[in-house]
């Protein structure tokens, strides 16, 4: 699971009001080469919650090159876009957990796939 996707996921356990962001507990992380496309990254950054990306990348030791705030000139700042690309697309969480910030429910990540499925009694529909 890429940090880009982590940035999009939320906990939907019944009763939870704010399940975002999920705390990432990474046990196995790999870095994979992904072709850099500056247009893709700069468009995607408009949809990304930057503070969440920065904090999550920092927690797993891949946030050093990321600024605290999204630079004003991010669309034309090639060096920054490369760093953002690395954090969003190349850092892969292979094994770990995603922890719901409110309920503490753990969603396991195995072989790079987060399992967000809830048991019946955890879902809002009855």
């Amino acid at each position: 699971m890429k940090l880009l996707t982590h940035n999009m996921l939320t906990s939907h356990v019944k009763g939870v009001i704010n399940g975002y962001p999920l705390k990432l507990i990474a046990r196995k992380v790999e870095v994979k080469d992904v072709q850099f496309n500056s247009d893709f990254i700069s468009r995607m950054l408009k949809k990304v919650d930057w503070p969440v990306l920065k904090k999550t990348a920092d927690m797993i030791g891949h946030g050093q090159s990321l600024p605290i705030e999204l630079p004003v000139d991010f669309e034309s700042n090639e060096g920054f876009l490369q760093s953002a690309h690395h954090a969003l697309m190349e850092v892969e969480i292979i094994e770990g957990d995603l922890e719901c910030p409110e309920s503490g429910r753990l969603f396991p990540i195995q072989d790079g796939i987060p399992n967000m499925l809830l048991r019946k009694e955890e879902t809002a529909q009855t």
């Binding site: 996921l9 975002y20 949809k47 796939i113 987060p114």
Partner: peptide
């Protein structure tokens, strides 16, 4: 290269921030 797979029911785990995207 640009993908992720998620095990879930429908779009349940996509955050409300993903609405309209």
């Amino acid at each position: 290269q640009n993908y992720d797979c998620i095990c879930d029911n429908m779009l349940d785990s996509l955050s409300s921030r993903m609405r309209g995207t």
